[in-house]
């Protein structure tokens, strides 16, 4: 079994863990599940390379903490985060810390498989994703200054309402700026947008 087919699921909710494992096995992956971050970290040193699917919201240590400790252990497994409603800011932070991607619950099969493929193409986790930096940078130049301001805050993980407040515009206007930013950056999802922006060297603004 090659590394791109191996998946480690870390989720405290038994049903979500079991069902996701089943779904991914059905899709042809080799799956192992872990019921907590601690459990996974304890066994991580002996594990062969594979993609880690991490739930952000877990009771003992959360997904972000697992990610940090993995990095401290020099375990360079690619990580995909699963977030619940309203946890996108957390996920964006995780991406800046090196996570490959995140999917928001409830997610489509397509979305999770796409993220796993993306992770598999990454031999190691890097703080700056190896996206074509130049292409991303040239797309970044297409943004108006207001659009760039919105993007800097999106990358910081700020929700629309906070961005609106900070820039003194309505959430509706933020929404339309965001749509144009996605369009110009050719990003289909927020995670893709964050990845591109980081590749282009954009600094988050809080």
């Amino acid at each position: 079994m090659n590394a791109s087919q191996r998946i480690y699921i870390v989720d405290d909710d038994e049903a979500v863990r079991d069902s996701l494992g089943f779904q991914l096995e059905a899709a042809g992956y080799d799956v192992r599940t872990f019921s907590s971050g601690i459990d996974f970290l304890n066994r991580a040193p002996g594990l062969p390379p594979g993609c880690v699917i991490l739930d952000v919201r877990m009771p003992d240590i959360d997904g972000l903490e697992v990610q940090i400790r993995l990095a401290e252990m020099k375990q360079s497994l690619p990580i995909v985060l699963i977030t619940g409603h309203g946890e996108v800011p957390l996920a964006v932070r995780a991406m800046r810390a090196g996570a490959v991607d995140f999917v928001e619950k409830p997610f489509s099969e397509e979305a999770i498989l796409e993220s796993i493929r993306l992770a598999a193409n990454r031999s190691v986790t890097l703080a700056i994703p190896d996206e074509h930096a130049e292409a991303a940078a040239s797309r970044l130049k297409l943004l108006s200054s207001r659009e760039r301001e919105v993007l800097e805050r999106l990358v910081a993980g700020l929700p629309n309402k906070t961005i609106a407040c900070g820039l003194g515009i309505s959430p509706r206007t933020v929404e339309s700026h965001r749509a144009r930013v996605m369009d110009k950056m050719q990003a289909r999802s927020l995670s893709e947008l964050v990845r591109r922006a980081m590749a282009a060297g954009l600094r988050p603004k809080f």
């Binding site: 909710d13 979500v16 069902s19 779904q23 899709a27 619950k105 409830p106 997610f107 099969e109």
Partner: peptide, 13 residues
């Protein structure tokens, strides 16, 4: 979200 995610996962698999 948790049980609903599980239901869809099982059925898609």
């Amino acid at each position: 979200n948790q049980p609903l995610t599980a239901v869809t996962n099982y059925l898609r698999g």
